[in-house]
Design a protein around this nucleic acid. Structure first.
Lengths: 225, 225, 225, 225
DNA sequence: AATGAATGAGATTTCATTCAT
DNA sequence: AATGAATGAAATCTCATTCAT
């Protein structure tokens, strides 16, 4: 990939070239960071001249934004596609988590762009990621709520299955926030030099979350003193 | 801070000046990122001329490294200082977590440097953070191990108390990652329009973590099908 | 004017298309200046693609030259057309001036190209304007000469009517320059917050010019001491 | 002037260097125009590196503005310095005109910047020149008014000296506008290849203006038909 | 007759870094 | 201990111009 410098690029329809450019851009942005990435390098990797990148994507800022948007859409799509509506809430959550970790593991540069680079730099970019995060969080909130209503979380032989009343809506939303954050953080860590396969990451988090959730719903609480 | 331009800085011992420079640098690096931060801005905020920064800290790279090292040391110090040796493992863990979250909340720029900026850029820097992470992880591993031996985690009467062997070091490190991510996410969410007091967020997280951890250590597992 | 982008332009005979392009070019050159004008903008305003502009007009330089030539021709044409040969010299002169000012006022972009932009840039262009200027100057010289011979200028009963020899060609050209400058300045001033109707401005200038000219031709001179 | 490339410039105090830079900038801007002038060329002519120009003058735009301001101030200063308050209005006007033409002839690049380049490009710049022009115009307005009151303009043997009542304030201001415009235009023309010495230009204009003014004040009017 | 795709060359601007005092 | 003066190198972005259809 990335044609030799000085060789004229073969003619291609604009839509295709734009995707190639964004592929290259995601790769470079993901590894170098927004500032350290150079348009020269991106153009070269895309196999075209710099002016063409500007002609199609206008500026470094817009290019970065376009990358964020595309990768955010791809990620949420991957998660949504993995879920089969009929299943129980825990199975849906598991499927979603697994898809999330698989997708981020398979597209580490894209994930770096979304999770690290976009957040590191100011306001045009952070908002894009916030939108994606909100979509995911809303989804998880829904699932946790459903799980609570179904009484699914493991009540190992013990009493009050389904005492979901103790989990207020605010708590549920908070848990969803925490879960999404945990997943994001784990994904980044897992990608660093293959410390954890996607499935293992999903399992660890699911175990952690599900047993924890179960405990909470049974009324278990930890407090200092 | 940040002396008026053109006014000659008062003579100060080198050690003090270096700290001022690093204060400024952490502030700027934390907000702008490594690449976007400019030595000009740092020098101005420190209230000295640029050549003095170079005289004392040699280069941007070394300055950044020095910042990372100092802030990593401060963070681990804060965590260690919070722990009273005599206490039960769960209390120690709680105290450590609280100190960690307090310190990072009170020093957001430092935390940004450690957590975001240092990882975003290549190899001279990442290693510094890895060192800190290893120190903290070892500490947590020790505490969890101790807790497991003590049988502290909740619902102790139940099943296999003390089957701590099932939590490999790798899992512990992963959980730490997840916790940090969850905490950050919660913090961001809580700050946004006062949805949750910071204290409540910490409590929710600890409950979540502790019951989850307890469940895991009792051998509870979630698995598909 | 300026077709919507992406819509294929209707086929038109070359001559028409060239005029459209030059219309657009004069507009853009007149407002932006030669260097700041971009071929992109010109092509878009003309409603055609850039390669077509190059096909017909070869280069930016040639396009600019073509604009200068066309507008110079239009201006001299307008002046000549206004004059009815039978009239007295002063009436002819008045008619010419009026036509000149009317045309330039009605075609400000064209006038900007001729008066400002063409002179600002090097040698291919200045020569074009010089040619026009010489044509106009020759014309005015002739009329003033005629007026002098006719003894038209005011207060004819007085002193040395017809001492036109004292006005060298160089003086006439200088006066033309001064008149143009005065007219432009007056025009700008009159337009600004309606301080003076355009007509009044022209009358004031003509009075000023004509009486001054008359005085000069009668041999009146102002000199220090 | 304009040190050889690659040779390090000798150290100089900032104020001096700034003037050298502006000298070079006026030269280049005046000949090439704002857009065609390159910061590279300006820096080289000034004998310094480009970054130093930016360090001191911030941007091309600010550099251009600084040039305009400096040259406008110099020109108005030159005109004002030439006038001796005690003299009659016509002598003052003459002295001012002569100084104006001399200064513009001696500083053709500066005059090009003020008269041609600054007006050719948009709004940050035009305003600067407008201020200068207004100062000069106000001055001339005052002198013409004074002349009218003194009844100075040549009343060659004829009747109504001092019929200044016929020149309303608005007319006087209009004449001043025209005079300043004429002078500006003449100055540009005279500079082009030495067609007219400064003194001759002043004389021509003074004759033109003074006799014309006299005629107007005697009630002479030209009107079509 | 007309255009979508593509680029070489050069513009302004920024930044880490050094020198001389 | 401290700084004003200065720069090499590289970044983003623009533009006139051509090629293939």
């Amino acid at each position: 990939m990335g044609a030799v410098k000085g060789v004229k690029a073969k003619r291609m329809p604009r839509a295709v070239r734009e995707q190639q450019m964004m592929d290259a851009a995601v790769h470079i942005f993901g590894r170098r960071g927004y500032r350290a990435a150079s348009m020269d390098e991106i153009a070269e990797l895309a196999g075209v001249s710099k002016p063409l990148v500007y002609l199609y994507l206008n500026s470094k800022e817009e290019l970065f934004t376009a990358c964020i948007r595309r990768e955010a859409a791809r990620l949420t799509e991957a998660v949504k596609a993995a879920i089969e509506p009929g299943l129980a809430a825990d199975r849906q959550l598991w499927a979603g988590l697994e898809a999330f970790f698989r997708h981020t593991a398979e597209n580490p540069d894209a994930w770096s762009v979304l999770h690290r680079q976009a957040r590191t730099h100011g306001e045009p970019f952070a908002a894009e990621v916030t939108a994606m995060r909100e979509e995911l969080t809303a989804f998880v909130t829904f699932l946790i709520g459903a799980a609570a209503r179904e009484g699914t979380p493991p009540a190992p032989g013990t009493a009050g299955a389904g005492r979901s009343g103790e989990l207020a809506d605010r708590d549920i939303e908070g848990l969803a926030q925490a879960l999404v954050g945990a997943a994001e953080s784990l994904a980044g860590w897992a990608n660093e030099s293959d410390k954890l396969a996607a499935k293992d990451a999903a399992a660890t988090l699911m175990n952690f979350a599900w047993t924890g959730l179960g405990g909470l719903m049974r009324g278990e609480r930890w407090s200092p003193r």
